[in-house]
Design a protein around this nucleic acid. Sequence first.
DNA 1: ACGCTGTTTCGATGGTTGTCGATGTCGACA
DNA 2: TGTCGACATCGACAACCATCGAAACAGCGT
Lengths: 117, 117
Amino acid sequence: MSNPLPVLDVTATPCCAPLTRSPIGESDAERVAAMFKALGDPVRLRLFSNVASAEGGEACVCDIQDVGVSQPTVSHHLKKLREAGLLESERRGSWVYYRLAPSALRVMSDLLSPVST
Amino acid sequence: MSNPLPVLDVTATPCCAPLTRSPIGESDAERVAAMFKALGDPVRLRLFSNVASAEGGEACVCDIQDVGVSQPTVSHHLKKLREAGLLESERRGSWVYYRLAPSALRVMSDLLSPVST
DNA sequence: ACGCTGTTTCGATGGTTGTCGATGTCGACA
DNA sequence: TGTCGACATCGACAACCATCGAAACAGCGT
């Protein structure tokens, strides 16, 4: 568990300049699009927000799974969020806790930052 | 043209608090996810960045369509970006110019802003 | 060892999406 | 009016995806 498929290692590269600064390159676009795509589903967005706004910065699946779909579907979406590098998970006892990946938010926020100056 | 399908009127509501602040609601999630989804494709992300980084804040299709797919596909993706409320278009003479929707960037950036405080 | 609860994986299915070539539309310019 | 160039739409197809129920897996308590 914990991070079986870190397809995107967000922490590795701060990644590219803001989208407004210069045209994003082909390979960067691939990596970044995967992150936005992960947030491009209402269920995943709510799960992400549930984790992001949780007390102590983390939450177990049982605390966030009330999003209107079956439990296996919740697990499926959490896996997608993990693979996109947005969430990390860790098993403690019976429960699996999810927290934000360290720099995920900043990377995306920076990419979308309006004109800067 | 210009905006045949403003499915999401971004300018209307500043929309919800940052995702880290409180769990996003069901209907807000629907609207916001559509925006992220639009950026969740490498081709669309490059088109968006090409427009966003263009001189004068706008560009005609002919200037940004070099993203490795056919012309109909480019047009298809630009339509998606329009429908998501991220881009606006306007015909002037022979050419169609695209520019960023006014508050699109700020809305998304704010949603992803890390912990504020 | 057994059952219980929380979580993930599996297999199937219906719907969505990215892509293309062909065709249509609109404006410019002879 | 006719043609050309810039974009958009249409129709089709393959690939992908969200969702579910069923089954497997992992700890915990008894």
